[in-house]
Amino acid sequence: MLLIRFMISKEKILTIAAFAMFMLTFASSAFAKDKIIWVDVDAPPFYILEGSDKGKGVVDEITLLLQKNMPQYDHEHRVINLSRLMYMMRNGEHVCHAALFRTSEREAEALFSSIPTDIVPPVGITIKADRKDDFPDHDNCSLAELLEKKKLRVGIAADRSYGKPLDNILKRNEGSSLVYARSGADIYSGLLRMLLAGRIDFILGSPLEAGYIHKKMDVGDSVINIPIRENMEYTMGYAACPKNEWGRGVMTEIERILKERRNTDEYRDIFEKWLDKGSLDRFRKAYSAHFLKESLTENNNSDGRK
């Protein structure tokens, strides 16, 4: 009789233990946070994946701001290329990008925020500050005139597109000794060293990219960035998530945060810390006149470059 009672008690204990484990598992899954996978790309100064400025890139900071204001989600970072990102979007995976440039192909596969998260200044030129007099129209330089009339030598990245207007000018001067195309690693750093040594007269590049390299190489005020007449348009990036119910829910939260935070000094400083003093005034005008007023419906024909 004692043996039977012991066996029954043992069976009850095992049953209770199993039920408790089931309830614990159920409770954990019921209260577990949903997770967003945020995409990182190795593209400083938009993403900085190593070094003393790790995590301080433009899109790094935008992503972090969104994460801090979405505590109801868990957040994970993954370094993947954009082809893989779009594949994950098509499959409805819980992945988002904080600042993706729009194309018609991407709009067919991803849900974009109605207002931009990111503003990228147009490609301009970097010159030595003490040679400013060689560029008299320094607020409205023409790349074509610099190459074809003033006979100044430009440094560019080989096989890189700078946008159709500038690409057309470079193509007209293809093979000219006035166009030096650099390839390999650390392209902009190498071009900057050539500029400082007087081997080229100016560099074609993004002011944000230039600001990052200038800071990294500690060149101070010895170089400045100036705009190009043929390329004055700022480009916008938008948050992107899958085109499904989950993506729409996340996007609602993203847009709420953007409406609250974009018109703050903290948000604007994400971009300005990578710009030289000469670019700040132009950037602030564009930030107020275009970025804060821009919406997806107002700019439906914009092409993307990222």
Rank of each mutant, 00 (worst) to 15 (best):
I16D: 07
D281L: 02
I37W: 04
D139V: 01
H94T: 05
F135C: 00
G249T: 12
I13G: 10
L170Q: 08
N69D: 14
D303A: 08
D167I: 08
D118Y: 11
F19A: 15
G163N: 14
F271R: 10
F135K: 00
S279H: 03
C141K: 06
E148N: 11
D265I: 10
M236D: 12
A27Y: 08
P136N: 01
A20F: 13
D133R: 02
H77K: 13
E233I: 11
P121R: 06
P116D: 07
Y234R: 09
N225G: 09
Y234I: 04
I156G: 02
P116R: 12
S52F: 06
N168D: 14
R268T: 06
D186M: 13
L275C: 06
E298Y: 15
G184W: 01
P71V: 08
A110V: 10
L146R: 03
N225F: 11
N301E: 07
N300H: 10
N301S: 09
D139Y: 03
M21W: 05
Y47H: 15
G304E: 10
E11Q: 15
L2F: 08
K164Y: 13
H97T: 06
W274I: 01
I48A: 03
A185G: 11
K277F: 00
I13L: 14
H290L: 14
F19G: 15
I13S: 15
R5Y: 09
P227R: 00
D167R: 09
T297G: 03
A239G: 12
H290P: 00
S114T: 11
R284L: 02
G184D: 04
R268Y: 07
Y212R: 00
M88N: 08
I213H: 04
F22A: 14
E266N: 04
S83K: 12
D134R: 02
G57T: 03
N231A: 13
P71L: 02
K259W: 02
G175T: 13
F291M: 06
K68R: 15
N69E: 14
F291W: 08
D159V: 03
N81Y: 10
A144W: 09
K215M: 01
F22G: 11
